[in-house]
Every structure is written in structure tokens, then in C-alpha cells.
Amino acid sequence: MVKHHLFWPICMLAILLLFNLVYSPRFFAITMKDGHLYGSLIDILNFGSPLILVAIGMTLVIATKGIDLSVGSVVAISGAVACLTISKSNDQNALGTLLLSVGISLALSLLLGLWNGFLVAKTGIQPIIATLILMVAGRGIAQLITSGQIITVSSSSYKYIGAGSLGTLPFSIFLVAIVFVISVLLTRKTALGLFIESVGCKPTASLLAGVRSHTVMLSVYIFCGLCAGVAGLILSSNVSSADGNNAGLWYELDAILAVVIGGTSLNGGRFFLSGTLIGALIIQTLTTTIYMIGVPPEITLVVKSIVVLAVCLIQSDTFRKTILMSWKTRKYPAERGVKRHAAKS
């Protein structure tokens, strides 16, 4: 049970939730208003949706022993293109305008993912360098699209993507659920997951075994770009505006942390989408906790980094064994001395 890869992430998520419950007794309260559910837990799922999407795509990239630092910029570009397209329309609420803006944004996100995959798979550039190029340039592209301003739109149909509800729950939760289920089915019910893991473990060996490693790497970067594009639509539609400078800022780091907390190794190979989901919820719950207890904005990132470091250390088998051995040494120093003496004799 303790050795299960989800044990420690679930424990840390439970600890964070219990801390919030102690601090705010109504933290778990869920109310119904105008046919919609409201509450802190619903907010965590709703506001954490973009991060979960980006982290799902990042998981498959990391499984191939890669990294994508450009997801934050892709988020900004996706939202900027969608809002710019809607703002240029004469009828912002028209269904055709919505479909056009979403289609252009997602197509561009796929193209950006293809660009990253081409640099990594075809040209052999190291993933961290290849995606760093788009991370820097993409943020500039987003600001060029918005002309350095915040583009606001008044489209109720577009706002529905990030702020609308389906039944009693936010629509964004259903988007995440669809992407998550599709990802799990494709990677666990087909050979694709095995191909991704084999490329992450031994790309040369997998190529010799008949796996098209370049195609696999290209595919995961395209998928990661698509996930970031959908996340950009959710973020921008939620506030009915696009900010090329701040949208998706540091999302790449939060996504990587979510993947690592979920148990996927940065060395590639075996990956855990369910663990990534828990990791992203931990990051979002931590963010909610920081805001709720009133941590000053200037030290928010410091507090967040300290907590994430503690989570990662607790998950580390080596760290736990070191602490346990240190505790045993202090508790039974004489006994250990006798054993060493007996061994020498």
C-alpha cells in the first residue's frame, strides 16, 4: 500500500485539504444556487482545469525523456488569437465566430506543438533548448498579437467555455474529463503507451525493435501543444480577455511539478496520468490555500516552493530511508555499537 505510486500524493492532497478544513470549517461546504454547485472544492477543480490539461500533455512529453517549456507561451498565444478573432467580428455572439476563433486557436496550437516536435525529433536539438526557443519567442508573439494590450471580448458563447456550466458543474471540468479519459484510453488500451515508454527508456533500442521513435516524439509534442491550446481557451474565456504578457505565466513549471509529484520520472519511461491528476490538484489546492490564509503576494512563490519541496522529499524513498536510519541511530546508539563490535570480532 505504502509503495503504491499514488499513496504519498493522495496523502499530501488529503493533508492540504484537512488543513484548509481546520482553517475554514466551511471549506468542504457545497451549495446549490440557480441550479449550479458552488464551493471551494468546485473552485479547485474549475480553476485547476487549465493546469490539469497542460500537465496531461506534459506527462507524455516527459515520458519520452523530453520537456516542453513553451506550454505557457502556447496558452497565451491560443487565448490571444481567439480573443483577437472574436473582437474583429461584427457579431461576437455568433456560433460561426466561436467556431472560427476556437478552430484557429487549436490549429495554431497544433502547429506550435509540431514545431517543437520537429526540432526535437527531426533535428536532434535537446528538448529543453528546442522548447525554450518557443517559450521566449512565443511570449513575444502573444504580445504582438495583442499589440501589448489586453484584448477584451463580450461573447457569451465564448465565455461559456471557461465560465459556463453543464448541468450543475463548470463546463471546464467536463473538458478536462474528456481529455483525461481519451488520454488514458489511448495510452493504456492501445500500444501507444508502450511505445511512449519504450522511447523514453531506450530510444535507439525501440527504433531497432521497429518502433518509429521520431513519430512517437512528434506526436506527444503535438498533443502537448493541443492541451496547452485548450487551456488557453479556458483561461481567456473565463475572464473574457487575453493578456499576452501574463496569461499562462509559469504554467510550464507548475505542470512539471505536477507530473513529478504524480510519480513520473524526468528520466523518461513509465508514466502515471492518474498521478499527474493528483499532482495538479495538489498544486491548485496549495495555491488556493495560500490565497485563503492571506500570504503576502511578494512571498507567495517562496511559500509555494517550500511546500512543493517538502512534498517531493516525502515522496522520495531515499530521503525517507535516510531519516529513518538517522532516527534509529539516535534511538539505539549503544545497540548499534555492540553490533559493530560483534561484527569485528
Rank of each mutant, 00 (worst) to 15 (best):
I178W: 02
L249Q: 14
E197Y: 00
A228K: 00
K189I: 00
V176N: 03
M135T: 04
T287P: 00
L277E: 06
T168W: 09
F171M: 12
T85G: 03
R336M: 13
G79D: 08
G244P: 05
W115T: 04
D254T: 02
S236A: 10
D254V: 02
K304H: 09
L273V: 13
G263P: 08
F319S: 01
L53E: 00
T97S: 12
S87D: 12
E298V: 08
K344R: 10
V260Q: 05
A231M: 03
T64E: 02
I323K: 06
N246S: 15
L226S: 09
I151G: 07
K33N: 11
L208W: 02
T85C: 14
A334E: 14
S219T: 14
P297D: 13
I196T: 10
C312A: 11
S240T: 04
V136F: 10
L112M: 15
F47D: 12
L6G: 01
L51K: 11
R330A: 07
V211K: 00
V22M: 14
I125S: 05
F28K: 01
I15Q: 05
L132D: 04
G148P: 02
P203S: 04
L249A: 13
V102E: 12
N90W: 01
C224I: 08
K88P: 02
S198V: 01
V22Q: 06
S49W: 12
H214C: 10
T288Q: 14
L95S: 09
L281Q: 03
W250I: 11
T215L: 15
I150A: 08
L235T: 14
V61M: 01
K33S: 12
I290S: 01
T329G: 13
L208M: 13
G148K: 05
L100A: 13
